[in-house]
């Protein structure tokens, strides 16, 4: 996975701990988007033909090439379903999240 990861962030205690002006390290993530999901995309690895369409059209970039075709970074998947809708061989199912 070649993407930023969530790091722990401590809120500044003193004014001098703030950055000088509104600029901060790029790719600095403090929280995930997983909580947005009501449906979760699940890849059927047998059906998947590794065409990488889902990887190309995910608006959040959460699908990545893996040793086993493609996988999903569920920390950041919002469950939009673009991948499932775009898959030509119906290898991705949207499954309701259990709360």
């Amino acid at each position: 996975m070649n993407r930023p990861k969530v790091t722990e962030f401590k809120k500044a205690k003193h004014i001098n701990d703030y950055p000088t002006g509104p600029g901060f390290q790029g790719g600095h993530l403090v929280d995930k988007n997983a909580g947005w999901r009501t449906f979760r995309p699940v890849i059927d690895k047998d059906a998947c033909v590794n065409c990488l369409i889902c990887y190309m059209i995910c608006p959040d970039g959460t699908i990545y090439k893996s040793d086993d075709k493609v996988d999903i970074d569920y920390d950041f998947c919002k469950g939009c379903g673009v991948c499932a809708n775009g898959c030509n061989v119906n290898a991705i199912k949207m499954v309701k999240e259990e709360l």
Binding site: P19, T20, G21, P22, G23, F24, Q25, G26, G27, H28
Partner: peptide
């Protein structure tokens, strides 16, 4: 200035 973008240290500015 510490308040700049550079290839060595990518920054997100004007947030």
């Amino acid at each position: 200035t510490p308040n700049k973008m550079s290839i060595e240290k990518p920054m997100n500015m004007g947030f």
